Structure formats: C-alpha cells, structure tokens
Computed example of a mutant assay.
Amino acid sequence: MKTALICGVSGQDGAYLADLLLKKGYSVCGTSRDAQMSSFRNLSSLGIREKIKLESMSLTDFRSVLQILTKIQPDEVYNLAGQSSVGLSFEQPVETLESMAIGTLNLLEAIRFTKAKIKLYNASSSECFGDTKGLPADENTPFHPRSPYAVAKATAFWEVANYREAYGLFACSGILFNHESPLRPERFVTQKIIKAAINIAAGKQQKLYLGDISIQRDWGWAAEYVEAMYLMLQQQEPDDYVIATGETYSLEKFVEVAFSCVGLNWQNYVESDSNLLRPTDIAVGRGNPTKAEQKLGWKAQYKMPDVVRMMVVRNEKVIT
C-alpha cells in the first residue's frame, strides 16, 4: 500500500485528490496548519473524513515539515497548500508569497535532506503565464505573472525545477488552468455566480454584482484535474504539464449558462461594480494540454457548460 501526504487537504483539490487516492488503495494523510481546529468540511461532504489521517503542519516552518515527513514516510507528496485566491493576494501579498514560496522550498529541502525516495507534486497555476494575447499557453510559454498570487506560484515553480535539475529529485509541477466544483468557497467568482443564480431563482436574492465579465478563461472540472496530478507522479521521469480543457469562454458566457440553468435571463439581474475590479487582470486565459494528452493519456471530458450545469445541480441540493 502506497502512502500519500496531501498538504492542503481541506481545499477543493485536496478533497477530490484524497477521494481519488483512497479509491486507488492508498493510505492518505492530509495536513492543515491546525488539524484540531479545521472543519475539513470538503472531506465530510465527500464522506471520506474518517478515512484520512489528519496532521497539523506549518509549511513555512521547516522543523514542522521535517517532523511530518519523518513521521508519515510518504511515497508521494502533493503540495496543494497556500493562499489560493488571486484577488486576496493583492491584499495579502506577503502571506501569499511566504505560504507558497517558502512552503514549497521547505518541502523540497526536507526531501533532499532526508534522502527519502519521495515523489513530489507541486500545484502551479496558469496565472503564471499572465496575458498571452489570446494565444494558448503550453509548457514552453514564458511566464509573465500579473498578481502577487502568480508571482508566488512562479517562484515555487522554479524552485521545483531547480531541485529536480540540481539534486535529481522526482519533483514536478502541474500548471493548472481554472478548475471548478461545488467545493469552491464563495469568494471564488464562479461559486458566487452559481449561488446567486440559485438564490435569485428562489427569491432569496435580488441582484448579482460582478467586476469585468469580458475576461475569458479555460474552465474545467476539478475532480478530473486531480487525476492529472496523480498521473504525473506515476511517470518514469518527472516533468511539468499544462492541464486545461483547451477551450475558452468569457465570464459573461459563464453567467449566461448559470442563469439559464435556473430559467432566468442573466441580464435582468447582473450589474457591474467597479469596486470588484483588480489592479491588473488577464484578459484571456487559454491552455494547450497537448503534452498531457500525449504523455499522461489525460484529456478533459467536461467543458465550461458541463461544469456550470454540474455546479448548479449539486449546489441546489445543498441550498435546498
């Protein structure tokens, strides 16, 4: 039986990944900064909380990281932790950088220090690419981060690449484009839209306020994207991969699909709020997942309209 350590198990991706690995026969340990106080709501919603060993670990504390790696002795480590909101990173740039850059470095250094045969997956982000002028980004596209979040993710990406090349660690990064699910917190605009549409249809809300709805993104289904994470660590050689659907839609289209799912015309309920605009944003996010399909055998089955419909259905069950 393999043992997997998931840093950031309480988040959307951590919960889906834990569920996937349990089904594959893994012993799964998940960490949080304070496991005794964390609710682990996402694990409970998937019915797997009692199947996972939960430990407290601070990724920014090297001693804490070293202790957990020594105690758990994992075969695979999935680094999904860190401040996860692009918008919040403008308000908390130091916390964002430290949680990702120092956290990832501590994991790499602890693995190097212990000489353990651990395979490491690092969660990178399409935000690292910045604005590619509408061109699809692949593994060779230069980084041009446009937010503190993206800067932090880019830093962690190059740390992983450096340790892989300098010390021969099996360490790789998944450069994931946007991926959604009902497990997203409401501070993410996609979940905000879904819940607003359902609440407005039920007469519980009057309006939905959004920033720039002309932006375009490549949206996928989170439960599928964690399969790509797993596949990366099953390869003979470590490498980095772009994970995306290859299809891009505007936020306006996302809103339209969400409201149509509940029988409403979005234009009657959505208003613009300039306070929700970011200092800098990416006009178009578009991914090229060809390498993942060719080398991992992974291809997204669900595109944005499918994702929206699934989110509406599952959120309706929760809300009602």
Score class of each variant (00 low, 15 high):
198 I>S: 04
228 A>C: 11
243 I>H: 14
174 G>H: 06
225 Y>D: 05
195 K>Y: 04
200 I>K: 04
147 S>T: 04
242 V>A: 02
163 Y>S: 02
154 A>Y: 05
237 E>D: 15
219 W>G: 00
196 A>P: 03
228 A>H: 07
184 R>L: 14
226 V>M: 07
150 A>G: 12
199 N>M: 09
174 G>T: 11
145 P>C: 02
228 A>N: 10
201 A>P: 10
200 I>M: 08
172 C>L: 13
241 Y>D: 08
244 A>V: 09
171 A>D: 12
238 P>W: 15
185 P>N: 08
179 H>M: 01
218 D>E: 12
221 W>E: 10
192 K>E: 12
164 R>H: 13
208 L>E: 14
153 K>A: 02
197 A>W: 14
139 E>L: 06
219 W>E: 07
139 E>G: 06
217 R>P: 06
202 A>T: 07
169 L>C: 04
198 I>F: 09
233 L>Y: 05
143 F>N: 01
219 W>P: 05
177 F>E: 01
216 Q>D: 10
158 W>R: 03
140 N>Y: 07
172 C>V: 07
237 E>S: 12
243 I>N: 11
148 P>E: 01
177 F>P: 04
214 S>V: 11
176 L>T: 07
177 F>N: 02
199 N>V: 02
139 E>P: 04
200 I>P: 07
179 H>L: 00
186 E>C: 01
212 D>F: 14
181 S>M: 03
204 K>T: 11
178 N>M: 02
191 Q>W: 03
192 K>F: 09
209 Y>F: 15
232 M>T: 10
173 S>E: 09
235 Q>T: 15
219 W>K: 05
221 W>D: 11
144 H>Y: 08
190 T>I: 08
210 L>H: 12
232 M>D: 04
194 I>Y: 10
184 R>K: 12
183 L>G: 01
241 Y>C: 10
142 P>G: 00
161 A>Q: 14
166 A>L: 12
236 Q>D: 14
244 A>M: 09
145 P>R: 06
154 A>I: 05
228 A>R: 08
220 G>Q: 09
175 I>Q: 06
171 A>G: 08
191 Q>M: 11
214 S>M: 09
162 N>D: 01
157 F>G: 00
167 Y>P: 08
190 T>N: 03
232 M>C: 12
202 A>M: 12
239 D>I: 12
199 N>Y: 09
151 V>P: 00
220 G>W: 11
233 L>R: 12
197 A>R: 11
216 Q>M: 15
181 S>H: 02
209 Y>L: 15
170 F>T: 03
138 D>I: 01
142 P>A: 02
